[in-house]
């Protein structure tokens, strides 16, 4: 029997795409009014041919909107991750603190960041800041939990080495603890990024902050389902791109013990 070649997956992948588009086409024939692949492709062409147009404050190209969402995501995610890693290291180094804080972390991470939105909006009275804070809230918990876990389970040997070399606390954290817990932390960052990207769409839609989520909602209000489907595809593709970036980061930080 012939072994499946290295390139076999590509063929299979294209087959899935074909099956997906065929299934989509068939379902739009049965459900009236649902946009099929062809009209969506036309819309995509229309939007993508001029991705950065600017017709005033509420009418911008899809590229610009994606950049708005990405910018918001980056800002909220970086802030959330920095906070999560700092807190995680502190908790990871102190078992008592970790045990005491863990139940609350578990409760907080179970709450959808969207659920905080009314409260946040009421307190800060600014939709852009609120959207950022939603991303922040979505980013913080998985990374916090993973960092604390990674730091607390770091191999004793590595800590011993840093002690024997009498490293100061700063180099200990940056040269031994963070790299040692690196892979676990990045795994947390990936989950965080996923939930932040999932949260950003409804946040933008509900808050009316310019971005992809806003675009989805706006097109729905215009009853343009074709554009909605296109926006869904864009959100998915951007998400894959973000995940790809974090996966390369994970590869750089991975180590074989």
């Amino acid at each position: 029997m012939r072994k499946p070649g290295n390139k076999g997956w590509i063929v299979l992948c294209l087959l899935f795409l074909f099956l997906f588009i065929a299934g989509w086409q068939i379902s739009t024939v049965s459900f009236r009014d649902l946009p099929g692949p062809w009209p969506v492709a036309e819309t995509a062409w229309y939007f993508l041919s001029d991705p950065f147009y600017d017709n005033g404050p509420n009418d911008k190209g899809i590229g610009t909107l994606a950049l708005y969402s990405l910018g918001r995501l980056t800002l909220g995610f970086v802030a959330g991750s920095v906070a999560a890693i700092i807190l995680g290291v502190i908790l990871g180094l102190n078992q008592t603190l970790f045990k005491a804080a863990n139940p609350y972390i578990q409760i907080l991470r179970a709450i959808s960041p969207i659920a905080w939105m009314p409260l946040l909006l009421y307190s800060v009275q600014n939709s852009n800041v609120t959207a950022l804070m939603v991303v922040f809230m979505a980013s913080i918990w998985p990374t916090l939990a993973n960092t604390a876990f990674g730091v607390s389970t770091i191999k004793k040997d590595y800590v011993n080495v840093s002690n024997i070399l009498q490293m100061n606390p700063i180099s200990k954290v940056f040269k031994v603890i963070l790299p040692g817990a690196g892979p676990t932390i990045v795994a947390g960052l990936k989950i965080s990024m996923g939930s932040a990207w999932v949260a950003i769409v409804p946040a933008e839609a509900l808050l009316g902050s310019l971005g992809l989520g806003y675009f989805v909602w706006n097109e729905w209000n215009n009853l343009s389902l074709t554009s909605v489907v296109f926006a869904i595809l864009v959100i998915g593709v951007v998400g894959v791109f973000i995940d790809f970036m974090l996966t390369s980061l994970a590869k750089r930080l991975a180590y074989v013990d």
Binding site: D157, Y158, N160, V161, N163, I164, L165, Q166, K175, V176, P179, G180, G182, L253, Y255, V256, D257
Partner: peptide, 27 residues
């Protein structure tokens, strides 16, 4: 406490796996 006047060589080497040979000595 530990000190740079006493260096340990460990049974299981205890090298930092994310650093190179050079990096492990440089640290």
């Amino acid at each position: 406490g530990p000190g740079l006047d006493r260096m340990v060589v460990f049974q299981n080497f205890a090298l930092l796996p994310w650093l190179t040979v050079f990096g492990n000595i440089r640290i």
